[in-house]
Amino acid sequence: MTLTTTRPGVRTQAPRTPKRTRRRPRWEIWAPLGLYLAFTLVPFYWMLLYAFRPAGETGIVPWPLTTEHVTKVWTDLGFQTFFVNSLKVGAASLVFTTVVALTGGYALARYDFRGRRLFMVAMLCTQFIPGAMMLIPLFQVFRTLELVDSLWSLILAETVFQLPLSLILLSGFIRNVPVELEEAAWIDGCSRLRGFLLVVLPLLRPGLVAVGSFAFIHSWNNFLFALMFLSSQDKYTVPVGLSYTIGEYSADFGALAAGGVIAALPVVAVFAVIQKYLVQGMSAGAVKG
Protein backbone atom coordinates (compact mmCIF):
# COMPACT_ATOMS: atom_id res chain seq x y z
CA MET A 1 0.00 0.00 0.00
CA THR A 2 1.57 3.31 -1.10
CA LEU A 3 0.84 6.75 0.27
CA THR A 4 1.09 9.85 -1.87
CA THR A 5 2.05 13.12 -0.23
CA THR A 6 1.80 16.63 -1.53
CA ARG A 7 3.73 19.77 -0.64
CA PRO A 8 2.03 22.30 1.67
CA GLY A 9 0.11 24.94 -0.17
CA VAL A 10 -0.22 22.87 -3.31
CA ARG A 11 -3.82 22.03 -4.16
CA THR A 12 -4.47 18.71 -5.69
CA GLN A 13 -7.32 18.18 -8.07
CA ALA A 14 -9.51 15.15 -7.61
CA PRO A 15 -9.62 12.83 -10.59
CA ARG A 16 -12.59 13.43 -12.78
CA THR A 17 -15.11 10.69 -13.11
CA PRO A 18 -16.02 9.98 -16.69
CA LYS A 19 -19.47 11.14 -17.66
CA ARG A 20 -21.90 8.44 -18.47
CA THR A 21 -23.13 8.64 -21.96
CA ARG A 22 -26.86 8.15 -22.32
CA ARG A 23 -27.42 5.28 -24.64
CA ARG A 24 -30.30 5.58 -26.98
CA PRO A 25 -32.59 2.57 -27.28
CA ARG A 26 -31.85 0.78 -30.49
CA TRP A 27 -34.43 -0.25 -33.02
CA GLU A 28 -33.51 -3.89 -32.43
CA ILE A 29 -35.17 -3.56 -29.01
CA TRP A 30 -38.14 -1.39 -29.85
CA ALA A 31 -39.17 -3.13 -33.06
CA PRO A 32 -39.91 -6.55 -31.48
CA LEU A 33 -41.58 -4.88 -28.51
CA GLY A 34 -43.74 -2.79 -30.82
CA LEU A 35 -44.76 -5.83 -32.84
CA TYR A 36 -45.62 -7.75 -29.67
CA LEU A 37 -47.62 -4.82 -28.32
CA ALA A 38 -49.52 -4.45 -31.58
CA PHE A 39 -50.19 -8.20 -31.69
CA THR A 40 -51.58 -8.00 -28.15
CA LEU A 41 -53.63 -4.80 -28.37
CA VAL A 42 -55.11 -5.04 -31.88
CA PRO A 43 -57.64 -7.77 -30.91
CA PHE A 44 -58.79 -5.67 -27.95
CA TYR A 45 -59.16 -2.62 -30.14
CA TRP A 46 -61.12 -4.64 -32.68
CA MET A 47 -63.44 -5.83 -29.93
CA LEU A 48 -63.98 -2.26 -28.69
CA LEU A 49 -64.52 -1.13 -32.28
CA TYR A 50 -67.38 -3.56 -32.89
CA ALA A 51 -68.82 -3.00 -29.41
CA PHE A 52 -69.15 0.80 -29.70
CA ARG A 53 -69.47 1.31 -33.45
CA PRO A 54 -72.99 1.78 -34.85
CA ALA A 55 -74.42 -1.17 -36.75
CA GLY A 56 -73.75 -0.97 -40.48
CA GLU A 57 -70.65 1.25 -40.13
CA THR A 58 -67.34 0.01 -41.57
CA GLY A 59 -64.85 2.62 -40.35
CA ILE A 60 -61.84 1.71 -38.26
CA VAL A 61 -62.67 4.45 -35.74
CA PRO A 62 -65.79 3.92 -33.58
CA TRP A 63 -67.39 7.27 -34.27
CA PRO A 64 -70.04 8.26 -33.44
CA LEU A 65 -69.94 6.15 -30.31
CA THR A 66 -72.98 4.09 -29.46
CA THR A 67 -73.96 1.88 -26.55
CA GLU A 68 -76.78 0.09 -28.33
CA HIS A 69 -74.86 -3.19 -28.45
CA VAL A 70 -74.01 -3.05 -24.74
CA THR A 71 -77.63 -2.22 -23.87
CA LYS A 72 -78.89 -5.03 -26.07
CA VAL A 73 -76.56 -7.58 -24.50
CA TRP A 74 -77.11 -6.42 -20.93
CA THR A 75 -80.91 -6.22 -21.01
CA ASP A 76 -82.31 -8.15 -23.96
CA LEU A 77 -79.95 -11.13 -23.93
CA GLY A 78 -79.87 -11.45 -20.13
CA PHE A 79 -76.20 -10.71 -19.55
CA GLN A 80 -77.11 -9.05 -16.28
CA THR A 81 -78.13 -12.47 -14.92
CA PHE A 82 -75.15 -14.21 -16.50
CA PHE A 83 -72.79 -11.67 -14.96
CA VAL A 84 -74.20 -12.17 -11.47
CA ASN A 85 -74.01 -15.96 -11.83
CA SER A 86 -70.37 -15.76 -12.88
CA LEU A 87 -69.59 -13.53 -9.93
CA LYS A 88 -71.21 -16.00 -7.54
CA VAL A 89 -69.28 -18.95 -8.97
CA GLY A 90 -66.00 -17.04 -9.07
CA ALA A 91 -66.26 -15.67 -5.54
CA ALA A 92 -67.28 -19.01 -4.02
CA SER A 93 -64.53 -20.87 -5.89
CA LEU A 94 -62.00 -18.29 -4.72
CA VAL A 95 -63.00 -18.67 -1.06
CA PHE A 96 -63.20 -22.48 -1.02
CA THR A 97 -59.99 -22.98 -3.01
CA THR A 98 -58.00 -20.53 -0.89
CA VAL A 99 -59.19 -21.84 2.48
CA VAL A 100 -58.68 -25.52 1.68
CA ALA A 101 -55.33 -24.89 -0.03
CA LEU A 102 -54.17 -22.79 2.92
CA THR A 103 -54.87 -25.50 5.49
CA GLY A 104 -53.47 -28.29 3.32
CA GLY A 105 -50.44 -26.24 2.31
CA TYR A 106 -49.61 -25.55 5.97
CA ALA A 107 -49.71 -29.27 6.73
CA LEU A 108 -47.41 -30.04 3.80
CA ALA A 109 -44.99 -27.27 4.73
CA ARG A 110 -44.77 -27.72 8.50
CA TYR A 111 -45.33 -31.45 9.10
CA ASP A 112 -43.06 -34.25 7.91
CA PHE A 113 -45.29 -37.29 7.63
CA ARG A 114 -44.97 -40.52 5.73
CA GLY A 115 -46.06 -40.25 2.09
CA ARG A 116 -45.83 -36.46 1.93
CA ARG A 117 -43.73 -36.41 -1.24
CA LEU A 118 -45.85 -39.09 -2.84
CA PHE A 119 -48.93 -37.03 -2.07
CA MET A 120 -47.42 -33.94 -3.69
CA VAL A 121 -46.43 -35.93 -6.78
CA ALA A 122 -49.98 -37.25 -7.02
CA MET A 123 -51.30 -33.69 -6.79
CA LEU A 124 -49.01 -32.63 -9.62
CA CYS A 125 -50.03 -35.58 -11.76
CA THR A 126 -53.67 -34.56 -11.57
CA GLN A 127 -52.79 -31.42 -13.52
CA PHE A 128 -52.11 -33.58 -16.58
CA ILE A 129 -55.71 -34.83 -16.68
CA PRO A 130 -57.85 -32.76 -19.09
CA GLY A 131 -61.11 -31.49 -17.71
CA ALA A 132 -62.99 -32.95 -20.67
CA MET A 133 -62.10 -36.47 -19.51
CA MET A 134 -63.87 -35.85 -16.19
CA LEU A 135 -67.12 -34.49 -17.60
CA ILE A 136 -69.06 -37.76 -17.63
CA PRO A 137 -67.91 -38.95 -14.16
CA LEU A 138 -68.61 -35.53 -12.68
CA PHE A 139 -71.99 -35.39 -14.33
CA GLN A 140 -72.90 -38.78 -12.83
CA VAL A 141 -71.75 -37.64 -9.39
CA PHE A 142 -73.66 -34.38 -9.55
CA ARG A 143 -76.77 -36.13 -10.82
CA THR A 144 -76.62 -38.48 -7.85
CA LEU A 145 -76.23 -35.51 -5.53
CA GLU A 146 -79.03 -33.66 -7.37
CA LEU A 147 -76.70 -30.77 -8.20
CA VAL A 148 -77.15 -30.78 -11.97
CA ASP A 149 -78.40 -27.40 -13.23
CA SER A 150 -77.13 -25.78 -10.06
CA LEU A 151 -74.34 -23.28 -9.56
CA TRP A 152 -72.98 -25.51 -6.80
CA SER A 153 -71.92 -28.05 -9.41
CA LEU A 154 -69.67 -25.43 -11.02
CA ILE A 155 -68.33 -24.27 -7.67
CA LEU A 156 -67.39 -27.80 -6.56
CA ALA A 157 -65.90 -28.73 -9.93
CA GLU A 158 -63.82 -25.56 -10.10
CA THR A 159 -62.61 -26.00 -6.52
CA VAL A 160 -61.57 -29.60 -7.17
CA PHE A 161 -59.64 -28.75 -10.33
CA GLN A 162 -57.95 -25.66 -8.90
CA LEU A 163 -57.06 -27.18 -5.53
CA PRO A 164 -53.96 -29.30 -6.38
CA LEU A 165 -51.93 -26.49 -7.94
CA SER A 166 -53.12 -23.96 -5.35
CA LEU A 167 -52.17 -26.33 -2.51
CA ILE A 168 -48.64 -26.82 -3.85
CA LEU A 169 -48.15 -23.09 -4.46
CA LEU A 170 -49.25 -22.13 -0.96
CA SER A 171 -47.12 -24.85 0.62
CA GLY A 172 -44.12 -23.29 -1.10
CA PHE A 173 -45.04 -19.83 0.20
CA ILE A 174 -45.48 -21.16 3.76
CA ARG A 175 -42.19 -23.08 3.58
CA ASN A 176 -40.36 -19.84 2.80
CA VAL A 177 -41.65 -18.22 5.99
CA PRO A 178 -39.05 -18.88 8.71
CA VAL A 179 -40.39 -21.27 11.31
CA GLU A 180 -38.53 -19.23 13.94
CA LEU A 181 -41.24 -16.59 13.67
CA GLU A 182 -43.86 -19.11 14.78
CA GLU A 183 -41.62 -20.45 17.51
CA ALA A 184 -41.18 -16.95 18.89
CA ALA A 185 -44.97 -16.56 18.96
CA TRP A 186 -45.32 -19.89 20.78
CA ILE A 187 -42.80 -18.77 23.40
CA ASP A 188 -44.87 -15.62 23.95
CA GLY A 189 -47.90 -17.78 24.74
CA CYS A 190 -49.67 -18.08 21.39
CA SER A 191 -51.19 -21.36 20.34
CA ARG A 192 -50.30 -22.84 16.96
CA LEU A 193 -53.51 -21.54 15.41
CA ARG A 194 -53.15 -18.06 16.86
CA GLY A 195 -49.49 -17.91 15.92
CA PHE A 196 -50.37 -18.86 12.38
CA LEU A 197 -53.10 -16.23 12.15
CA LEU A 198 -51.03 -13.44 13.69
CA VAL A 199 -47.58 -14.17 12.29
CA VAL A 200 -47.67 -16.37 9.20
CA LEU A 201 -50.93 -15.34 7.56
CA PRO A 202 -50.01 -11.64 7.07
CA LEU A 203 -46.81 -12.71 5.30
CA LEU A 204 -48.77 -14.91 2.90
CA ARG A 205 -50.70 -12.04 1.34
CA PRO A 206 -48.93 -12.24 -2.06
CA GLY A 207 -49.47 -15.99 -2.23
CA LEU A 208 -53.10 -15.77 -1.18
CA VAL A 209 -53.75 -13.04 -3.73
CA ALA A 210 -52.10 -15.05 -6.49
CA VAL A 211 -53.95 -18.29 -5.70
CA GLY A 212 -57.29 -16.54 -5.23
CA SER A 213 -56.97 -14.53 -8.43
CA PHE A 214 -56.08 -17.61 -10.47
CA ALA A 215 -59.05 -19.50 -9.05
CA PHE A 216 -61.41 -16.61 -9.76
CA ILE A 217 -60.20 -16.02 -13.31
CA HIS A 218 -60.26 -19.72 -14.21
CA SER A 219 -63.81 -20.13 -12.94
CA TRP A 220 -64.87 -16.90 -14.66
CA ASN A 221 -63.54 -18.08 -18.04
CA ASN A 222 -64.58 -21.72 -17.81
CA PHE A 223 -66.99 -22.65 -20.58
CA LEU A 224 -66.97 -26.44 -20.71
CA PHE A 225 -68.24 -27.15 -17.19
CA ALA A 226 -70.93 -24.48 -17.39
CA LEU A 227 -72.17 -25.79 -20.74
CA MET A 228 -72.26 -29.38 -19.45
CA PHE A 229 -73.77 -28.95 -15.98
CA LEU A 230 -76.25 -26.10 -16.58
CA SER A 231 -79.43 -26.32 -18.64
CA SER A 232 -81.60 -23.41 -17.45
CA GLN A 233 -80.99 -20.03 -19.03
CA ASP A 234 -81.28 -18.21 -15.70
CA LYS A 235 -78.30 -20.29 -14.45
CA TYR A 236 -75.96 -19.58 -17.38
CA THR A 237 -72.63 -17.86 -16.84
CA VAL A 238 -70.99 -15.27 -19.08
CA PRO A 239 -69.03 -17.70 -21.33
CA VAL A 240 -72.17 -19.72 -22.09
CA GLY A 241 -74.15 -16.55 -22.66
CA LEU A 242 -71.55 -15.35 -25.18
CA SER A 243 -72.01 -18.50 -27.25
CA TYR A 244 -75.68 -17.68 -27.77
CA THR A 245 -74.83 -14.51 -29.69
CA ILE A 246 -73.64 -16.78 -32.52
CA GLY A 247 -76.47 -18.21 -34.57
CA GLU A 248 -76.52 -21.19 -36.91
CA TYR A 249 -75.92 -19.18 -40.07
CA SER A 250 -74.86 -15.75 -38.80
CA ALA A 251 -73.36 -13.94 -35.84
CA ASP A 252 -74.19 -10.63 -34.22
CA PHE A 253 -70.66 -9.24 -34.05
CA GLY A 254 -71.75 -6.10 -32.23
CA ALA A 255 -73.45 -8.07 -29.46
CA LEU A 256 -70.60 -10.57 -29.35
CA ALA A 257 -68.02 -7.81 -28.97
CA ALA A 258 -70.10 -6.02 -26.33
CA GLY A 259 -70.41 -9.26 -24.37
CA GLY A 260 -66.65 -9.74 -24.67
CA VAL A 261 -66.06 -6.28 -23.22
CA ILE A 262 -68.37 -7.07 -20.30
CA ALA A 263 -66.63 -10.41 -19.75
CA ALA A 264 -63.15 -8.83 -19.83
CA LEU A 265 -63.85 -6.02 -17.37
CA PRO A 266 -63.67 -8.11 -14.13
CA VAL A 267 -60.46 -9.82 -15.26
CA VAL A 268 -58.81 -6.50 -16.07
CA ALA A 269 -59.98 -5.06 -12.75
CA VAL A 270 -58.61 -8.04 -10.82
CA PHE A 271 -55.15 -7.76 -12.38
CA ALA A 272 -55.14 -3.99 -11.91
CA VAL A 273 -55.68 -4.48 -8.18
CA ILE A 274 -53.38 -7.47 -7.54
CA GLN A 275 -50.41 -6.63 -9.74
CA LYS A 276 -48.60 -4.89 -6.87
CA TYR A 277 -48.97 -7.98 -4.67
CA LEU A 278 -47.63 -10.32 -7.33
CA VAL A 279 -44.29 -8.52 -7.57
CA GLN A 280 -43.52 -7.75 -3.93
CA GLY A 281 -41.44 -10.02 -1.74
CA MET A 282 -43.27 -12.54 0.38
CA SER A 283 -41.44 -12.13 3.68
CA ALA A 284 -39.02 -9.27 3.03
CA GLY A 285 -37.74 -7.84 6.28
CA ALA A 286 -39.52 -10.33 8.49
CA VAL A 287 -36.38 -11.47 10.37
CA LYS A 288 -34.28 -8.31 10.24
CA GLY A 289 -32.81 -7.05 13.47
Rank of each mutant, 00 (worst) to 15 (best):
A284G: 10
Q13K: 09
V95A: 01
T17E: 09
V148H: 00
K19Q: 15
T237W: 04
A257F: 05
L163C: 09
V279A: 06
D188A: 11
L167V: 13
T40E: 11
T75K: 11
A284F: 10
I274D: 05
F225S: 07
I29M: 12
A215L: 03
Y236W: 12
Y45A: 12
Y111G: 04
P178C: 02
Y50I: 10
P178G: 07
R192A: 14
Q140L: 10
P64S: 10
I29W: 13
V267C: 02
V287K: 00
G259M: 04
G259D: 07
R194V: 03
D76I: 14
F83P: 03
E28P: 14
G260Q: 08
V273I: 06
A185D: 13
S171R: 07
P164M: 12
V84F: 04
W63N: 08
L102I: 02
V268K: 07
P43L: 13
V141H: 05
S250V: 14
P32H: 15
L3R: 15
L65Y: 09
L37M: 12
S231M: 09
I136Q: 08
V73E: 04
Q127D: 08
A157T: 08
T17P: 10
Q13I: 14
L181Y: 04
L37Q: 13
P54D: 12
G207D: 01
L170G: 02
P130K: 03
V121E: 06
Y50A: 15
P62D: 10
T6G: 15
R22G: 14
S283I: 09
L227S: 09
Q80P: 00
P130Y: 02
Q127R: 09
V240A: 05
F128L: 05
L48R: 06
T103A: 13
Q127V: 08
F271A: 10
W46P: 02
L102S: 11
A286T: 00
W186G: 03
P43D: 15
F113E: 12
A258N: 03
Y249V: 12
N221M: 04
V70W: 14
F214V: 09
R117D: 14
L204C: 08
I187F: 08
G59I: 12
T81K: 13
F52P: 00
C190T: 06
A14W: 11
L203H: 10
G56F: 04
Y249T: 08
Q127G: 08
M282K: 05
M134P: 07
G285W: 04
D252R: 03
Q140R: 13
L203W: 03
F79W: 09
F223Y: 13
I274P: 02
L135E: 00
P164C: 09
L48H: 08
G195K: 01
Y244V: 07
L33C: 03
P54E: 14
F113Q: 07
D76A: 12
F214D: 02
L227H: 04
T71R: 15
P130D: 06
F229W: 01
M134C: 05
S166E: 01
G247C: 04
E146L: 10
S231K: 05
S150G: 05
M47I: 14
T75E: 15
V287S: 04
V211K: 01
P62G: 00
R143P: 02
W152P: 00
V89G: 02
T5S: 13
A258T: 08
V261T: 14
